[in-house]
Structure formats: C-alpha cells, structure tokens
Nucleic acid binder design. Structure first.
Lengths: 246, 246
DNA sequence: GCGCGGCCTTGACCAGGATCAAATAAGCTC
DNA sequence: GAGCTTATTTGATCCTGGTCAAGGCCGCGC
C-alpha cells in the first residue's frame, strides 16, 4: 500500500541504494543522480510537506514512517497513503503536492532536487518507465483501498490494515509468514482511524474484539502477534488478499 | 474523476483523434498508431473486461459510459472509477486488469493492440511521459475520492458526485457553469451507491432531500438542474473543490 | 389498453459506529 | 517515585445509514 516504491538495495554505487532507478543507469547517469542527492531528517510528528507547498525535491523514505493525508476545514482527515521505507515521495512534473505529508516516526529521506531529476528522467527513458510502473502500482493500491473504505465493516477494516502492515513488515525482514508472525504497529489508534475512515474509539474496540477472538495477541499497546495468518485473512472479508507478500 | 485521460480532439490525422498522444508524434509514429488501431462496441450492461482477464488492448472511450469496479464474494461491490468519453482504459506494461470494466451505456472504444502500443511507448518517450502524467492525475483523483468514501456524510457524498458529473459534463460541452446548469445522470441509483459506498435507498433519499432543499431540481429521474452551483459546492463539505472545471 | 419488469421512492425499523464521558495505562520530567 | 502528559480502553447513549418491505412510475411488448 502506497508511496511510489523504490527498492533500496545494493547496486554497488549509491550510499543509499536505489537499485530500481539506477540498476540500468550508465555511470554518468549515476554520477548525475549522486550530484543531485541530499538527505533530510524529520522528527516524529513534524510536517514534511503541506498540501500546496512548492515541491523542491522528490525523495524516497530511508527510515521511519510518514503519512499522506488530506484534511477538511472542519478537521475531518483521511489518510490516503502510508509511506514506509523504500516508498517514494513526490510527483515528477508537478510542482506542488496535493496532500499533506507528515512524519509519524523520525524519518530520514533521500532527496533528489526536482528539476535535475526531471531532466534526467526525460533524457533517460527507463527512469520514466520505472516511475510509470510505480505509479500504476500506487493507483492499484489506492483503488483497492477504496473497497476497504467504501464497503468493509470496522472489523474487516482493522483486519485489512493489520494484514498490510504484517505483510509489509515480513517482506522487509524477509520473514516467512508461514505461521506465527509478530510486528509493531507503526501508527497510533488515531492514525489508524484516519486511514480506515473510523474513529479512534472504534479502532480500539475492534482491536480488543480481535484479541478476544484470539485472532491476534497484544504485547503492550503496539506489538501485535498473529498466531494464524489465515485466520486474520479470513477476517478481512477477501478470500485471498492481493496475493502473497509482494 | 478516473480513467486515464486522453484528449479527443482534432490533430489533423486520426479519424478518432488522440491529440495528447499524437500531437507530438512524427508522421511515421502516427502511421504506426493508425495501423494498430481498431474499434469495438459494447451494449449497455455488457462486461468489457473481468478482473484478471488477459488484456489484449489499451483503449480510450469514444462514446458512452463505463465503470471500473471490484466485487467481494458476498456481492458487495465498490466502483473505483467512472470512465467517460476521452478516458483511457488499460495499463501499459500489465497484462491483466485488476478490476472489472462494465459498459453502463452503449460504449464505443478506440483500441490499440497492446504489444505494439507498448513498443511504440518505449521507443517514443513523449508517449510514456504523457501516460505517466495521466496516471498521476488518476492517482490524485483516486486519493481525493478516498476522502469522500472515508469521511463524508451521505449528503456530502451525493453532492460531491453531482458536482463531478456536472463539471465533467460542462467541460465536454464547453458550457459556462456561471449559473444554472443541467445534465443527465449517467448512472442508476444503484451504480451511484456503488460509487459512493452507500445503498441505493440512501442515494434515493439524499437526492430527494437535496431536491427538497432546492439545491437541485429534477426533470424525470435522471435529468438534474443545478440552479446555483455554489450552493451545491457548499453541500460537498469542501470549501473549494479541486479548483475550477479542469 | 393491459400486464410485466426495471428502476425508483418511501416508510418502518434496526444496528453499526459515532459521540460524549470517564477511567486506566504508559512514558517523561523533575 | 510523584506528578505530568499523552495514548488507549471501556462504557452509555445517540443517530446516520442499512435493511426489509411495499408501492409508484415508466417504457415496452402484445
């Protein structure tokens, strides 16, 4: 779910390694990428971008969690994306963000100055093609989430979110999700509510209900243990949910 | 809202004219586009694609209305996009659609065979860049719709949908939306419900309520008259809704 | 004209989640 | 460890929108 995705892996060139962008890059292109790259850090709770802000960079998340959201004047807010390490921030060709980006935990971004990045994209078709692919993935994720928001019950929504976090966590750690997996919830109850179109009280109640049904166990407030992944999947209302970990 | 958007305008070359794709094309590229182009028609209610189907073409809607949706096993369905004339169907680089596409009215598509279209895209960066731009627009629309699904009341949802249809209709006709606009609802109450995450009864009730509040007038079941567009905008809950007609 | 089948509206009732309120737990500062 | 603050849980009550059911409207075929 969400955030244009760049694999962060060793390509033998970048200190922070954007394999997907640079694996097919020529040395001079890599040099250009290096020359327009810099790092920024944000503390938990800090805004990274407000909607409408001028965008001076595109970036990918190196560490930490950020959210993409929009807020109505009366304060109702809806999260539209969850940005985890390796997700991409920014819109090549656009000079402002239509959404707010907020650091949920401490966040480190690897930024590329926007103009030169766009120039590179235009002169280097495989970068543009990769971005198109990532954007199409994002679009699919967004549309899948619409089903969650529009048609699922509170319990199904919570199960869907837990599953996404569980899978994402497992794929980062290369765990086998065979049976028995544990992970930390990166979000407060309120942030979960904003993601799911619920109130924080309902989120709390449904998490308690899933615990009572022994679908999940809790260690403290944030750590979740899923003894049987299939049982969790069954709670989402989908029969099989977007395939394996991916 | 939704569907990759290709302007259908006269570029002096195509019978059905994809200005956005071909305005920067060289004659030989146009010739290629022509050679891989064909038309298909579907009757109202017919499926165009089932989710998972092999995709043999990308296409743009010439006439009629189609919807993009997903359905859970128990029958709950959520529409994730509304495809109006000039909208784009298909996913370059993907060989199956993750969603169902259904003709709501009689539909004519202008199709391009997928493989050669992709080849052309790879050899012709401006087509890929245009597709990236369209996809980013789609993604923004999808995310804006998440706010509607997750946080708006039934009345606000209806108003939001009416506004989208009104604006889209106006922009196709080049009307001035100054004051007093009229349009036909392209969707049944049930389809509106599926788009908005409501039931058809609630849709019907809220439309009646808007009529009673004199925000809209009805001629028959489908034709809507909006005497004061600002009054409708006020019902959406947004202060200003994604800017002017766009 | 009559009957039929879609589509739409309206009513009565119900329930899932929101709202309001309070208590509990977990950090953090000093 | 006492006293904050903030996150979370839980309870009581309310209300929006869902569910179930009955009619109305309209076009269409005969």
């Amino acid at each position: 779910m969400s955030g244009l995705h760049l694999d962060i892996k060793d390509c033998g060139q970048c200190p922070i390694r954007h394999r997907a962008v640079c694996s097919r890059c020529e040395p001079d292109e890599l040099e250009t990428l290096e020359s327009i790259k810099y790092y920024r850090t944000y503390e938990a709770g800090q805004p990274i971008l407000w909607s409408g802000d001028h965008l001076e960079f595109v970036a990918s998340v190196v560490t930490g969690i950020a959210t993409l959201s929009q807020t109505m004047e009366d304060g109702r807010t809806q999260m539209v994306g969850l940005l985890l390490p390796s997700d991409f921030i920014g819109r090549p060709g656009r000079d402002s963000s239509p959404f707010d980006v907020v650091a949920v935990s401490d966040v480190t971004l690897c930024c590329f100055r926007r103009r030169p990045f766009e120039d590179l994209m235009i002169s280097t078709p495989h970068i543009g093609n990769r971005l198109l692919e990532m954007t199409l993935d994002e679009l699919d994720s967004a549309r899948e989430w619409m089903l969650v928001l529009g048609r699922k019950t509170a319990r199904e929504k919570i199960a869907s979110l837990l599953l996404i976090v569980a899978r994402r966590d497992a794929s980062l750690r290369k765990n086998h999700p065979s049976d028995g997996m544990a992970f930390d919830l990166p979000l407060t109850r309120e942030a979960m509510a904003d993601y799911l179109g619920l109130t924080l009280e309902t989120v709390s109640r449904q998490i308690s209900a899933l615990k009572k049904s022994e679908i999940i166990e809790l260690q403290g407030k944030r750590r979740v243990i899923v003894p049987d992944l299939d049982a969790l999947v069954a709670e989402t209302g989908d029969d099989f949910d977007g395939g394996p970990i991916a």
